[in-house]
Write a protein that binds this DNA or RNA. Sequence first.
DNA 1: GCGACCTTTTGGCCGCGAGCGAAATGTCAT
DNA 2: ATGACATTTCGCTCGCGGCCAAAAGGTCGC
Lengths: 224, 224
Amino acid sequence: MAAVARLIGDPARANMLDAMLDAQAHSAGELATIAGVSAATASGHLRQLLDGGLVAVAAQGRHRYYRLASPEVARLLEGLMAVTAPLVTRHRATPRVPNALREARTCYDHLAGRLGIAITDTLVANGAVRIDDNNIAVTDHGRAWLGEMAIDLDAPRGWGRRPVCRPCLDWSERRPHLAGVLGAALLERLLDRGWIARVDGSRAIRVTPPGAAELRRRFGYEPG
Amino acid sequence: MAAVARLIGDPARANMLDAMLDAQAHSAGELATIAGVSAATASGHLRQLLDGGLVAVAAQGRHRYYRLASPEVARLLEGLMAVTAPLVTRHRATPRVPNALREARTCYDHLAGRLGIAITDTLVANGAVRIDDNNIAVTDHGRAWLGEMAIDLDAPRGWGRRPVCRPCLDWSERRPHLAGVLGAALLERLLDRGWIARVDGSRAIRVTPPGAAELRRRFGYEPG
DNA sequence: GCGACCTTTTGGCCGCGAGCGAAATGTCAT
DNA sequence: ATGACATTTCGCTCGCGGCCAAAAGGTCGC
């Protein structure tokens, strides 16, 4: 247990892992810049993360692209943030995290932040999903509703057997939001409909002008 | 994020935290022995864990009793184990963890291991709780059934507002088991009915002779 | 092929922090 | 008060591991 925690415990490695939370692959050099260390140092860190089973690598030409080894690792990292956040903000009234991230961001492969919460709330109000305590389940009515969004939860999605819908604790809103296959499919659909877009090299999500209208109408989302 | 992970990343501190996963308070000297370090070193570690908000302390006479600061910390630790376990056992066919722990143990303040899974399965079969994907909810029928066990989920339980029932991933069985207020109440009831007992200074749980009969009849649990 | 580029390996420096013994602090028992 | 015990603080040593510059692998474009 200590071995895994030790890997995350170094600031440079933690920054790299945090960057990989966007579920996209990053080259070694890119991660070196993000971590603020030389390429040599970064390479050493990445080797450790690889040996520790926290990340996986895909060699492509002269680049080597690193990504988190599994959704479990992503969940672990978000869990760490959930424990960390209250400690940091305990003595600070002003939000320490950039507002763009609080507003809308990706959490591994699904949406989080105010936008993620707004969508979750709407699906609950619709009766599309049901939440008891901290648990989420998709209803039959929900499957039909999602069909209109061209989302078929029963379609094979490549990444083997994976829970259809899982709660994921949002560390900025302190509430669970949609994760699992449903969360991933929603993010994908919103992206390729052009309602939202990724922001440069950040996990932040930007709402496009056409997206603003659609998201307000369908999910009652108003930018904060 | 790195700060919290760094604290767990030291073997001595990890051992201490692991010991505290039984949700009981441990004196500083006891934790020093468990971690295999001197009292002076242990004191330093405990101070760090305290400053980091991972543990809380209660001074009682000349002893100082340490415990985990919150259930969230316990969840984080179990999450770490879930990521760690597969890495360790990947190249080992034989179980590395003592069988007593796989059989029945406490997981913070509820039951885990084969016994915990057996109880969870029975409650699902009864229709007392419902599991969708990885989510658990208590049904009305479940509340009545629990009433026969003298468990009232609506009774105030001291520890403020806390989810009635939460899934908790079992790192030895790789399946979710009952946690939350329900899990805690079940453990408490089984203990004070004398069906199970804590084992010395371990998280292992021993089934008593009268308990063996009751657990087989009610939950279909057969010792492995 | 050759040069440009990305990445990893090697070697060496250096600081953080884990470790202990000894002393100090605080608490209980008599 | 005095001694026994639990814990913390202090001062110190020492090794692990992060860091970089330089060199070595690989891969692509020309």
